[in-house]
Design a protein around this nucleic acid. Sequence first.
DNA 1: TTGTAAGCGTTATCAT
DNA 2: ATGATAACGCTTACAA
Lengths: 335, 335
Amino acid sequence: MNPNTLEEIARLSGVSRSTVSRVINDHPNVRPEVRARVQRIVQQVGYHPHAAARSLVTKRTQVIGLLIPQAVTRIFTDPFFPHLIRGIASTCNARGCHLMLSLFTSSTDQDSLYRQVLRSGYLDGVVVASTTLDDPLIPRMIEDGIHMVCVGRYPDDRVSYVDSDNVRGSRMAVEHLLRLGHRRIATVTGPLSMVPGHDRLEGYRQALEARGLPVDESLIAEGDFSEEGSQAVMQRLLATGPTAVFAASDPTAIGVMKALKAAGRRIPDDVAVVGFDDLPIASIVEPALTTVRQPIEQLGATATDLLLKLIEGEVQEPQHVILPTQLVIRASCGS
Amino acid sequence: MNPNTLEEIARLSGVSRSTVSRVINDHPNVRPEVRARVQRIVQQVGYHPHAAARSLVTKRTQVIGLLIPQAVTRIFTDPFFPHLIRGIASTCNARGCHLMLSLFTSSTDQDSLYRQVLRSGYLDGVVVASTTLDDPLIPRMIEDGIHMVCVGRYPDDRVSYVDSDNVRGSRMAVEHLLRLGHRRIATVTGPLSMVPGHDRLEGYRQALEARGLPVDESLIAEGDFSEEGSQAVMQRLLATGPTAVFAASDPTAIGVMKALKAAGRRIPDDVAVVGFDDLPIASIVEPALTTVRQPIEQLGATATDLLLKLIEGEVQEPQHVILPTQLVIRASCGS
DNA sequence: TTGTAAGCGTTATCAT
DNA sequence: ATGATAACGCTTACAA
């Protein structure tokens, strides 16, 4: 497939292996004339350096991993991930590195997969997405000194992360509902073991408390970020008679809307709905969804950039980046 | 990160490097007692062989690529890809290999990316998805002798592929509509430069011709597999007064349904709709979508299996696998 | 059954 | 500015 070696190019261009290496790596100290000759040959035979040989000595692979622990069904349902991947992949392309996808599905031997992926030198570092607080992977990676950046806040100062401002975003959403006069505001949360699930509920609480309103726990129900799951959860929540619902993600909001419609409630006349994400679908559903926009692709791109800096040693200390969120008002809240 | 070497394990267990290598690779001809001792040390220090060093000599990386040429927006919208990825990733996990994601976005320097990814020895082979007929990548890969399997039929006998039975599936769909008495059956196709787009239209044609019915070209409109695009296309098609529409994918069908609803047509009373894919969303939309089920995950899994066999040399000749499709009847066709 | 030694294709150090 | 040469960590004959 790629039978050419440095040695061969050297022979063909009548110089030594080292000179060819210098040309390939754009080192100075090569006579322009020689450089040109070598480059021509390289071009001609379509030579490309062998990655493994190279990384054996440089200790760099130019490959980063996207690690998704506990890869559950959600990944293949929630458009969040495709958007995230796009952000990561385009940054990789731009920076000349490559992306390895590691889904730690529950069935796989976690320990063996961990060693294969993280201890074999395959990867220069990893972007970790969709972690739960109790995931044993992160502590292990910290201990092993693996370069990593989490997408989503992680409550350990040693780990770098990039996150949306979930608390502020959801607080804005609920404040908007309050401003519209709603007092019985229910919320279908994400999994509370996941940071965004937790944080978006926190924003909900803060909005109420800032107004001096009590938090009625019966209006809070834990969902799983999915459409189906949230629909079922909302169905049970109907009995509490909310006039508005804050859904912790757009798929959640869709599920909520389905449950409401199935129960004959009109949106927003009977019940207002606000989501979180601003996925393309938010502006397509009927009625169009008021939601909190988080910059998913940018999350991926920023995480990747940061990871690359960490790897290069451009920054040493763990970094924590929070990207702003923004309320996008559409029809579903009736304002 | 992984400072251990074979040499070190050898020293620690009082044997030679080669013996450790034999233990690691499960070679026979190692005294059980010695094997056990070495394994204990390996376990203790958490040793894992260095991938690059290993592949430098074996010429295998245990990494396969998922190559998506012309990676357009669709990839991040159409649930087809997440499902495909799931099939590929779980097979990779099961077979101890890893997955590299290569999106050839239009902005990237195709040639440079090609060499980096395909000629650097990074990959043992690739699964190629979503190709167009005129993509220059495939011929180049054939020429370079790269192990590959296409997801989706490719009209060159030298390339292996795995595909759903698109022609048969869409033919069944249209035959079903004919059986229900429809005679003005429109179709919103996929991009006709893509094989599945082409094949699903072919099935439509065959169904009509088998009944001796003329194919009215004004009832055929080219879409792009997307919801938004198809909605616009359907809007224009309304004027032709179809009583049924065959949509070439589920997202297409959703777009079609939206256009119909927006025009005040009832489904299925005024117009029947049939889709293609059977994504989870098909059973969620209102009315539930009659559609042709194609086994997307299995497509990915089969392609990966085949690729691995090709790499191992277990099979030499290009293989062509067609997986069966199946009509799933729900409410949207009113039967 | 075990050890010795020769590569694999690079980069990097040191002379020249 | 260029060329030997020694690593990098592993597998694999071949020898013992």
